[in-house]
Amino acid sequence: MQADIVVLPGDGIGPEVTAAAIAVLNTVGARYGHRFRFEQHLIGGAAIDATGTPLPAETLEAARSADAVLLGAVGGPKWSDPNAKVRPEQGLLAIRKALGLYANLRPVKPHAAALGASPIKPHLLQGVDIMVVRELTGGIYFGRKQRNGDSASDLCEYNADEIRRVVRRAASLARSRSGRLTSVDKANVLETSRLWRDVTTQVVRDEFPDVALEHQLVDSMAMHLIAKPRAYDVIVTENMFGDILTDEASMLAGSLGLLPSASLGEGTVGIYEPIHGSAPDIAGQGIANPYATILSAAMLLRHSLGLDAEAQCVELAVSNALDAGVLTADLADGRPSVGTRAATDAVIAQLQLPCQVMELRD
């Protein structure tokens, strides 16, 4: 296979962790007979500094013509003024919207080696395997915004079609897993959530009768996610609720540095990025955790390129590196830690070994 991948390193540790993922993808390509071509472009704060806009036209054009997009992180103290008219995160929201990427997949599966880094009791984490599907292009983040003197408003708006498509994606995933889907809303207060609940119920009833659907209010979900995380499999929710709940879910994994994500639409192109931020306090020190970005590259292989076996091999390589005690500082919990390069090299070394997850040409 030959594939064109646009790389958007972004800000902070973004260039470091995307470099790690590129090295892993090059190893996969060399080992299994694929050719990946990488083209880097600007986004976020780096793009503001260079061009005055967080999403230059040439970046969007390149992303539209690529097979997949690998993204690092955006933002940092330099551009943190919330009142600024131009901000790094605007580039991220805009590219998702422009590419029609409405479903953000965020898997949460704690690894045994990282349980000590989580503030949650280890016995609650064993066996946790959650896929959060967050609606990505609607809701309050994209609604009309107003500020007049001492008052302000943000419009949260959804239509039935926006809800149907993301629920179908989530229900399809649930069908391929345990057949359980939890929909999160605030239907006791919000009209958008009442629409969300009605449409979700209809879609699952009419199109996925084999999927068991449960509704949860977002405040109770925030509690249950920590108290009984094994009770959940696929969770689908709207944009802002998903943003908040997935950061909370990172505590189950022990660190944001272990959680990848895929932003998908109707086609095969997607944006793949770790859910952590730009971590400007450690940028340039060579200590950033690359595992989440490497796992995002595995999702890229699976969802955009159709290379599921290769994706499984990358995921197994990361798991084996963690099993071997190759832990970055955020995971070490008092144990010896390594930097970005050593963690990346450990994954690459694992990829050189025979991979038995599926039939592959070794």
Rank of each mutant, 00 (worst) to 15 (best):
A171Q: 06
A288H: 09
K186Q: 12
E39P: 02
L295V: 12
V133Q: 08
V347P: 10
A84W: 07
T59I: 00
G267M: 02
I48P: 02
D219N: 12
E310Y: 02
N26A: 13
L181H: 11
E207M: 05
D247Q: 12
R35H: 14
A298C: 06
G138C: 06
I287T: 15
N26G: 03
I271P: 00
V74K: 05
G75R: 04
A98P: 06
R180G: 02
L316W: 05
P229K: 02
M1T: 10
E266K: 14
T328R: 13
D219Q: 10
P260V: 00
I5Y: 00
H224W: 14
E315V: 05
L60H: 04
L307R: 01
L316N: 08
V199G: 01
P82E: 09
R302G: 00
S183N: 05
A343N: 10
G334N: 13
S80W: 06
P56M: 11
A68H: 02
N320D: 12
P209T: 15
T200P: 01
D345K: 13
T344I: 09
P354V: 01
N26R: 15
T18S: 07
L70I: 11
A321K: 07
G143E: 05
D150E: 11
I287M: 12
A346Y: 09
E135F: 04
S255H: 04
L92M: 14
G339S: 12
Q216T: 08
A321C: 06
H34P: 04
V69R: 07
Q2C: 03
E266F: 06
P209V: 13
A114H: 04
D206Q: 15
E207R: 13
A212E: 14
I287K: 15
L71D: 00
P336L: 12
E58T: 00
A283I: 09
S80M: 04
T51N: 05
G75K: 04
T137W: 09
T268A: 11
N159V: 13
G91W: 07
P229I: 02
D67N: 08
A170F: 10
L70Y: 12
R35A: 08
A227V: 12
S151R: 15
E162K: 09
N148D: 14
V74L: 07
R164S: 09
R177Y: 05
V28T: 09
V269W: 03
E214N: 14
I163E: 06
L322N: 05
L213E: 02
C313T: 15
A170Q: 10
L155T: 14
G91D: 10
S278T: 06
A309P: 00
C355M: 09
L316D: 09
V203C: 05
E248S: 08
A309K: 01
G270H: 02
A47L: 06
L93Y: 03
L71T: 00
L25D: 01
V184R: 06
R180E: 12
P110Q: 01
